[in-house]
Design a protein around this nucleic acid. Sequence first.
DNA 1: CTTGACCCTGACGCAACGGTAGGCGGCAGC
DNA 2: GCTGCCGCCTACCGTTGCGTCAGGGTCAAG
Lengths: 252, 252
Amino acid sequence: MAWTVGRVAKAAGVTVRTLHHYDEIGLLSPSGRSPAGYRRYDDADLERLQLIRYYRELGFPLEEIATILDDPDTDPAAHLRRQHELLTGRITRLQEMVAAIEFAMEASRMDIRLTPEERFEVFGDFDPDAHAEEAQRRWGGSEAYRESARRVAGYGKEDWLRNKAENADWGRRFVEVMDSGAPADGPTAMALAEEHRQLVSRWFYECTYEIHTGLADMYVADERFTAYYEAIRPGMAAYLNEAIHANAISRA
Amino acid sequence: MAWTVGRVAKAAGVTVRTLHHYDEIGLLSPSGRSPAGYRRYDDADLERLQLIRYYRELGFPLEEIATILDDPDTDPAAHLRRQHELLTGRITRLQEMVAAIEFAMEASRMDIRLTPEERFEVFGDFDPDAHAEEAQRRWGGSEAYRESARRVAGYGKEDWLRNKAENADWGRRFVEVMDSGAPADGPTAMALAEEHRQLVSRWFYECTYEIHTGLADMYVADERFTAYYEAIRPGMAAYLNEAIHANAISRA
DNA sequence: CTTGACCCTGACGCAACGGTAGGCGGCAGC
DNA sequence: GCTGCCGCCTACCGTTGCGTCAGGGTCAAG
């Protein structure tokens, strides 16, 4: 089957200009032309375009894509295999970034100042300015972004203060429960642990039970978070940790 | 504390030139200068740089980053919240791409020709050319890529044929077991299911039991894969599916 | 046979830096 | 106090991967 530029562009999710460009630089030249000079792409061209798109998404420069695609010693499956590896690597990378953001959020909730080293840890020992850049050409106007913007836009200083207030209120009530001598895995402590989770969910992000126990462990493992809670009441970090775990187990 | 460009660059994992650029366009101007004209960054500047880096990694153009960072109605936590959302969105996106690659791999293993629509499904209904591009500036020379390249480089047409041969051999033996009347959750069928998993692992990617059962389900859910197996022996798709599931359960 | 959608080839423009040249600043060691 | 050497400064040109006209042919439908 023969395809015109426009149809290929639409199917592959690129612009016609992009295909022109790939043709210009010889990365993807259509296998033929119509009598009138129209580009005609066949199935093999589309297969090649698929590979190009994946490598592009993975951040490879066009020139390098050309050399790896034109390597005669590489069979088709090798590309898929490599792309699979690179993709999973990228996912791990993004998950690290998510963890770093969650860390920064908790620090922000507790007014803990991060050192610059901590701030850039996730960048520093990995790579400088990584992938990105192009996403925005579409993300900027995309629904996903708009929705995210809408959900987040309304958050001003005022809300921030309310957040702090709710947080403080929760802290007071939690200390009361601790002082009452109730067990950390008892119903009242667990209820407050659940409330803590929902507080994070409301103000920051969907905090699943899994993430929540992750945070709990961070509270006892990282001295700064421990210090934050210990300053409110000695033993609070461990007590909260236990309450969160108990709550997560009982809800699961 | 006051930082020089060089130290900031190193900590944040960017080049000095980049910081100069951010200064030029007013995205991140150091809060002060030394008597000699040296840029001096303070902690607030670094905090801002952290946000910039995340938004950049998420693909936002610098100009837009400037507007969202300078929005006075947005509190600091809102940025983290938004970045968290965008990051998790990106992870989902990459996971879709991984699934698409795994799909393409299986199709390739079985010599199933994909239609262009299928080829670009993962791009088409999402966004055109997405993020990427910059990663490579470092990925290209990075260890991660080099290693991936090394692992994959040796795969030539010859290996490809060996792969096919192994696959065919496995198919023959599997059919024998089926014809022998052995149950799909019996030891011999399970052993061949396990062999199937390792075959995928050796030639393509680390195929966990979870992924493997995912493939198994695909074999019965997607008619083309079903057709592939049914052509070898009627009932083979379902039989293989059961054997894979039984194997996964027994090994877990 | 006209009209609107689609195609062509230039050619210029732009973002986000990379790289380098040419020159000053700071401080360690002699 | 002088000499290196490293780090910083500004200025300017180069590059990638397209976007965006401009000016003009093509093709299927009505």
